[in-house]
Design a protein around this nucleic acid. Structure first.
Lengths: 225, 225
DNA sequence: TTCATTATGTGTATTATTTACACAAAAATA
DNA sequence: TATTTTTGTGTAAATAATACACATAATGAA
């Protein structure tokens, strides 16, 4: 019965946000197959590590990043998705603040870089499909879970939050209504700090209050933008 | 590099609906480990079959069922989830009309049965966790995708639909508002047929119009109950 | 046959939510 | 000090969600 010879990998679709652009973290493969092509960070799962550990390890090895938001995305098992044979991949979805890490290509990666999601290179394996699914997940999830804060500084002006949402959702947002709605969720603390970038009126800084968010969830209140 | 010895299984959390009750399809294991215990149908993926094929094959082998709604649920990779060693399982979520199949236990199953989701036996492996996640998926998904029709007869009185929703969601539903809302979605065809079960006014039969549903989705109209 | 019972089918008024929309305030810059 | 830029704020109108009751068409019992 035990002639199974399927190998298992993990791949990570990691997104970052900066100045009105969502980027995906990609590596250029050092080895065959698809040597020299861009791909998602990832690799074979070791026998004695959990799937999450595997993703985090591969991400750190290949890109230098340590991620703090990671969730499972989907598993890909098409028969011919990998020229080396039968390889099933469990893909993860991650978020990170790009400015908090210096990218360092190593092990299987000969290069690492952020690519705007509207300017992606062609990708190895079925990674295009994975990335597309991850982008859909980001768009959908940001409306019903407070994952956007993983992409912003800890303290941020309200306009950053608004710009993030309009970037991810790909449409304009009514500034007044958005603010009203978000503040109505009661998960933001307004700080006694102001920030002034260039011209214009200085903005108040806000901070996501996770404790309060969990409390509201427990009370059955739903987060929805 | 290739000392990987992880094996891959698929498991299926399949639900059926009858007379105000949601049931899950379980098998009693014929072999070790967990011999004699109830578990989700499933088993090892063969080298030359896709993940979906594997689930459908295992389901048919062990229970006699051929499923028509199946989607991936989640992948489970905890180090100690299987006493045989490192086994990662990709779980699927399925829906079926219980009355359209006769259950036939075979291969790894010594018995097959439907269990009401509020009267589940203890389960092998981490199948309790998988089933819990699947129930959550069912509850969530029925509100934003028309999967409920997979559980009803092709032609059904409106009261069946209403009862299904109140069963799955676990709360009362206002009959008039529910009907108004659902008919407003324009995905039901009202037939020129009536059905009379026992006493009471005979009900008109309805039918889900999938073509129309896809058309509305394409137009960007959202299904939401 | 008629009276009681059971389930279906329907509309409106009230409340809550969403949307559309414009100008003053605080700073930088010319 | 006048202009430009960005932040901060309220209200009215439209839409959606909720609460709620009685007539209709059948069965079954008296």
């Amino acid at each position: 019965m035990n002639t199974q010879s399927i190998r298992l990998t993990v791949d990570a679709a990691v997104f970052g946000y900066e100045e009105g652009h969502i980027s995906a973290l990609l590596i250029r493969r050092k080895y065959e197959p698809f040597k020299g092509q861009w791909a998602l960070p990832g690799g074979f799962v070791l026998n004695d590590e959990s799937l999450e550990d595997a993703v985090e390890r591969e991400l750190h090895e290949e890109t230098g990043i340590k991620i703090n938001y990671l969730e499972q995305l989907y598993s890909y098992g098409n028969l011919n998705r990998d020229p080396r044979g039968r390889v099933v991949s469990i893909a993860y979805f991650g978020l990170v603040r790009p400015d908090t890490f210096k990218l360092i290509a190593s092990t299987d990666a000969q290069e690492v870089a952020w690519f705007g999601i509207h300017a992606l290179p062609s990708l190895a394996f079925d990674h295009k499909e994975i990335l597309t699914m991850a982008i859909d997940r980001l768009k959908a999830k940001i409306t019903y879970q407070p994952i956007g804060f993983e992409l912003l500084d800890k303290k941020f002006p309200f306009s950053d939050l608004e710009k993030l949402y309009s970037t991810v959702l790909g449409r304009d947002i009514d500034r007044r209504n958005f603010r009203k709605k978000f503040l109505g969720l009661k998960v933001l603390d307004e700080l006694d700090e102001k920030i002034s970038k260039g011209s214009g009126r200085p903005a108040n800084l806000f901070q996501f209050n996770q404790k309060r968010y969990f409390q509201l969830i427990k009370e059955g209140i739903v987060f929805e933008i």
